[in-house]
Design a binder for these strands. Structure first.
Lengths: 249, 249
DNA sequence: GCTTGCGGTTCATTATTTGAACCTGTATTT
DNA sequence: AAATACAGGTTCAAATAATGAACCGCAAGC
C-alpha cells in the first residue's frame, strides 16, 4: 500500500477510537513501526487532521476535517436536503430512520432521526454498515453493476450475529428481491433484536450514492410489517434523490 | 516535503477551489507531475477525501471529511458551544461576528453570524486569516509564546491592501497593545473598507485556540468605536472559553 | 536505585515515489 | 474528413523518500 494510503488508514483508525491514544499503542493498533507512526502523525498534525494533547502527549482527531466538511456541505448539502425526508419518515413509521452515504469504500451513517418511542433502535453517526449484513448495505449493493457486487462479495463475509447471512449465494438472493421490490429487508443480521428495511438513494445515472433505512425492534415489527414500511422508505429515498439532483419524479 | 504532506496539500488545494477541476490543471496548480497528481488522487479517492465525477472525469472534495468532522464535533463541540455567544455578540454589536480556530498552521473561520443590517461585512467560512493582517490573527498571535511569534513573523509579510502592515516591528507593537487591552484592532489590513476588533479564545493553559472577531464597514465604525466594541468581544471570547472548558472563572 | 515502559530520534538499508515519454480517445480546426 | 491539439491516464528506469532495529532520556512503579 502507498504511504498516503497508510497515513489515511491511520487517520481512519484514530477516528474510530473514542479517546486519545498514545504513540506506542497507536503504532501497535495500526501495525506500523513506532517511528513510522510518529512521522505520519507529525505530517497529519501539521495539516490539522490530528491533534496532540500538550499535556498527555496523546493523539486525537484534529479540526481540519471540520473545515473541509463545511466546504463539502456547502456544495453538496446532501444531509441538509435529506433531513426533512428522514424526519418525515421517522414520524410516519414511528421508528428510527438513518441515512448513509458511500464514501471511501464503505457505507457510513451520516444522519439519524430517532423514533419518538421510548423503546427504539440507536444508530451511531459515522458507523460503517457492512454490505452483506445490513438492510442499507443490501439496498446499496443491489443497485450496483454486477461486477462490483462480485467484488464486494468476493471476500469471506463476516458474521456479526447467529442470523448473519455469510453465504454469498444467499446474499445474492436478497439482492434480487431488493431489486424487484425496490427495497431490502434485513432481520438481526447485524445486531440482535433489530429488523430494518432500506432503499437506495440513486443518482440520475442510476448509481446508488447511499441508502435510507428504517430500523425497528423485532419486538414491535416483523417481516410483514417491514414489507409495508418498505414502500414508504423507497418513496422517501426517491424524494431525496429527486430534490438533491433537481429531477422531479 | 514528505509524500503525505504533498498529498494533504493537494487536498487542501482542492478544498480551496470552488468547482471541479481536471487532472492536468490540478497538477499544474499543485506544481506536481501529472502522474504523481493522479496517484495522489487515486489514493485520496479510495479513502473518500476526493471524488471524481463519473462524466466529466474532474475531481472535487469527497465526503470523508464530513464523517470525520462529525466525530470531531461530537467530542469537541466548539462551534456548538460558541454559536450562542457569537449570535449574542452579533445582535449586541449589530455587525458581522466570526469565530476562527487554529488548525494545521492556519487560522480558519469556522462560524459566522451576520449582522442584521443590510450593509454588512461578508466573511467566508473556511477562509484562512493571515496572522499579521487581520484582527483575529493579531489577537491569536499576541497570546502565543514569544518564540512562536518570532516564527510566525520570520517570513516576509504579505501585503493585501495599501494599509497592510508588513513591518515586523510595527506588528509587534500591535501585539503589545492587544495584550494590554485584551483585544486587537485592525483597520483595512486585509480588506479595504473593513475594520475589526478581535479577542483570543484561550485554553485553560493560556494557549489561544482561536479568535472571535467583530467586523464592521469603515463607513459606520472608526477606531474609537472599535475600542468600545473590543471589550464586548473580549468578554464573549472569555464566555466561550469558560463554557467550552467548563471553567467558570 | 533499579526496572519498566513511555514518547521520541537516528541512520544505514530498502522500497517507494517520481516524471519524461508515451498511449488513447475526443473535441476543434483546417 | 483528415489533421491538430489537448484531455485523462499509464509506463518503467532513475532518483528519492520511507523504513525499522536500536537507541536516548525521562517518569512512574517497585
Amino acid at each position: 500500500m502507498s504511504t498516503i494510503g497508510k497515513a489515511l488508514s491511520l487517520l481512519d483508525l484514530i477516528s474510530r477510537l473514542d479517546r486519545d491514544i498514545g504513540l506506542t499503542d497507536l503504532a501497535r493498533l495500526a501495525a506500523l513501526d513506532k517511528a513510522t507512526a510518529r512521522r505520519f502523525l507529525v505530517e497529519l498534525e501539521s495539516h490539522g487532521f490530528v491533534e496532540q494533547d500538550g499535556e498527555t502527549r496523546r493523539y486525537r482527531l484534529g479540526a481540519a476535517p471540520v473545515r473541509l466538511a463545511r466546504i463539502r456541505q456547502a456544495r453538496f448539502p446532501f444531509v441538509a436536503v435529506a433531513a426533512p425526508f428522514v424526519r418525515a419518515l421517522a414520524d410516519e413509521a414511528g421508528e428510527t430512520v438513518h441515512l448513509s452515504e458511500y464514501s471511501g469504500g464503505r457505507l457510513a451513517t451520516i444522519h439519524v432521526e430517532d423514533s419518538s418511542q421510548a423503546h427504539r433502535v440507536i444508530v451511531e453517526i459515522g458507523a460503517a454498515l457492512p454490505f452483506h449484513a445490513t438492510a442499507s448495505g443490501l439496498a446499496f449493493l443491489a443497485f450496483l453493476p454486477e461486477d462490483e457486487i462480485d467484488r464486494a462479495l468476493a471476500r469471506p463475509l463476516e458474521r456479526f450475529t447467529p442470523q448473519t447471512t455469510v453465504d454469498g449465494q444467499a446474499v445474492r438472493g436478497f439482492l434480487r428481491e431488493a431489486r424487484e421490490r425496490g427495497f431490502s429487508i434485513n432481520r438481526q443480521g447485524f445486531e440482535m433484536g433489530v429488523i430494518s428495511a432500506a432503499a437506495p438513494v440513486l443518482a440520475p445515472n442510476g448509481r446508488p450514492v447511499g441508502a435510507l433505512a428504517v430500523a425497528a425492534p423485532t419486538a414491535r415489527a416483523d417481516m410483514a410489517k417491514m414489507l409495508e414500511t418498505g414502500a414508504a422508505v423507497a418513496a422517501a429515498a426517491r424524494g431525496i434523490a429527486g430534490t438533491y439532483y433537481g429531477t422531479k419524479r
